[in-house]
Design a binder for these strands. Structure first.
Lengths: 358, 358
DNA sequence: AATTATTCTGTGTGCGTACACAAAGGTAAT
DNA sequence: ATTACCTTTGTGTACGCACACAGAATAATT
């Protein structure tokens, strides 16, 4: 409750350099109007000591407001994107005392025009920073180019576009995460010969980056480790339960030799609930992604064996924080941030859910 | 870069209530010297609006220094405890602008007297808060009682003592983590019949809470799921490589029917390196705990199949933050915080290591 | 040399809060 | 009614920093 606390402050530096606090401040912020002589005196002191500004005092004194915009898909409350959004909103709260405001602009994932409209309006509003969940590669790229020109820093979450120049990326290494899915499936059933690989048919939309890369990773892994294994690709349709049920009956009921299944998008429950309904849980090893409530429920019913999670909340949270690290705290930020591929099974999923990541 | 930012401040409340800022402050901090009339006026306003103090301004203005002490085992730089310490030190840095100082007091894990000395000196120094890695239960308990009396808040990390009244606990649910080890071993080898269970002989010391509970969890899980399976308990001795090698030869080389092994303390590499040396990696499924550098190396050599991790850095970090949440930010803190049981395999371990947890 | 123009530098104020202190109000005792 | 005493209240200053502004020092012009 006493003494101890001590840190070098601007005033101390001023004293050491034999100038005033104002001059030190001008040097620190490179704001000009400093003679060479004074600048050198200050810089000499700065080199000697390790000045760490009090960011809280700094934020308090600053009059700048920051406006960040997060552009993500429209979604339902139980969706994967909701978790990303939660992370974003949590960051917004944590940073509110630093005069940071975050707006969420949502686009329709099935409608490129909607994405374009959102992006154009967003860029037109001249935000200080942008968090972006990429849509179609070429389209997205044209907007990131515009932001490069306007010097608006942007970060990617979930997936990224190699050609762009984001401040940072937070997301999984999709290819390797597909390999992991393969590895887990082989652990469950080393002798597996036929696997059903599910994906969703996105009306008029090329499959997301993320998902096709996972698929590629999985395929190449299986090809290498178990060439003999046959992969059946089944395309499901969002909301068309009838058709999906037919497709799944075809593969699971008619063809009794399929012993495993994978899905690379977050709606594993669509398949898992089918497995439950027809009592196939034991025969079919099934692996999915992301901790949607319904997925978790299926896992607890043992219709999903493994879920691979990717800390979506952390992605959103750290994405926003990367922007403020760069713009407000002037900290260097890591560009490529691959989030861990968390392996969840019945036995450890509860602790994962209960413990706030970050 | 403009408007937007606005939050209710003490001055606003003062205006609304028709009193001065000083009076509002006195009400907010329950510091007395306020007439019933004024208090009511202020409280009425407070109920209506949602006042969130600016903790940074508050920290800036506060003249209180906080001294936290972390009592943990002495250790080497590559040890498990080093990671806990790193989390502690990171928290100390993050909180330095809040006038928080953290001291690390280390005790000799093999010497109860050393623990007692550290604890007594520590308590005698009247810290504002304590982070504690428990030693022998009964001894530790006597000190937590003393801290209860002195109203010094303390948090447990790693393991806990049920009878004590900590502000918080951060650590794994050891019992279930033992079950998880069992589950993973069965996934690797569903037909396993003989398993070697390793532990370290701690000279003159009862095995740590943590470890014996994992062992119990594992045993009960195996008993339930695979009654026929035989468990061989092998006790190794820290630093006595010769003796250890003999013991391991006995179990792995003479007895060819052992197909799996587990160790519940962090030095899995002692066993794994033996498996590498005698080329037993493929025959023996082996599961260990914690991401020591040497363990990770063994995993990459495929001599360890699974490592169960417990975010030791997060434990240390959140432990210290729990103290400051309680003492400085007056936030309620969760008592029981079970960290996730992270499942690491060759395929996903790198991402886990690269990505800073929190 | 005197004046104006141009750097440059120090001081002062505010950010939102905590806390010390003095002033004001009230009550009880003389 | 006066004094003394306690309670309650408002004001002022400091925390460390950013930034505006005035004033000092220097350079350029007449």
């Amino acid at each position: 409750m006493n003494k101890l606390y001590s840190k070098i402050k601007i005033k101390d530096i001023a004293e050491m350099a034999g100038v005033s606090a104002g001059t030190v401040d001008r040097v620190l912020h490179d704001r000009g109007d400093v003679s060479k002589k004074s600048r050198e005196k200050v810089e000499k002191v700065l080199k000697k000591i390790n000045y760490i500004p009090n960011i809280y005092a700094s934020a308090l004194a600053s009059k700048k407001d920051f406006r960040f915009v997060a552009v993500i898909p429209k979604h339902n409350p139980e969706d994967y994107w909701e978790m990303i959004q939660n992370g974003i909103l949590r960051a917004a709260e944590e940073l509110s005392d630093f005069r940071v405001n975050v707006e969420i602009h949502a686009y329709d994932i099935f409608n490129i025009a909607s994405f374009c409209k959102v992006m154009e309006d967003m860029i037109g509003s001249h935000p200080d920073g942008v968090l972006l969940a990429p849509s179609l590669k070429s389209v997205t790229f044209s907007y990131t180019c515009k932001m490069d020109e306007l010097k608006i820093p942007y970060v990617f979450v979930d997936s990224r576009i190699e050609e762009a120049h984001p401040l940072a990326y937070f997301g999984q290494n999709s290819h390797l995460s597909g390999c992991l899915a393969g590895k887990l499936l082989l652990t469950l059933n080393p002798d597996i010969q036929e696997i059903a690989v599910f994906s969703f048919y996105n009306v008029g939309q090329i499959p997301a980056n993320q998902i096709s890369q996972r698929m590629a990773g999985f395929s190449s892994f299986m090809l290498e480790k178990k060439e003999s294994c046959r992969l059946h690709r089944i395309t499901l349709e969002l909301g068309n339960q009838e058709k999906n049920e037919v497709a799944m009956s075809e593969i699971f009921l008619k063809n009794k030799s399929v012993e495993g299944a994978v899905i690379f998008s977050s709606r594993a429950y669509v398949v898992a609930e089918f497995l439950e309904k027809y009592n196939l849980k034991k025969q079919i090893s099934f692996i999915g992604y992301d901790l949607l409530e319904r997925n978790v429920k299926c896992m607890k019913n043992d219709s999903i064996d493994y879920l691979i999670a990717q800390r979506p909340d952390v992605q959103g949270n750290r994405g926003i924080k990367a922007l403020s690290d760069h713009l407000i705290f002037k900290k260097p930020v890591n560009v490529l941030n691959y989030v861990p591929m968390d392996i969840l099974i019945h036995k450890n999923i509860d602790f994962y859910l209960d413990f706030p990541n970050c």
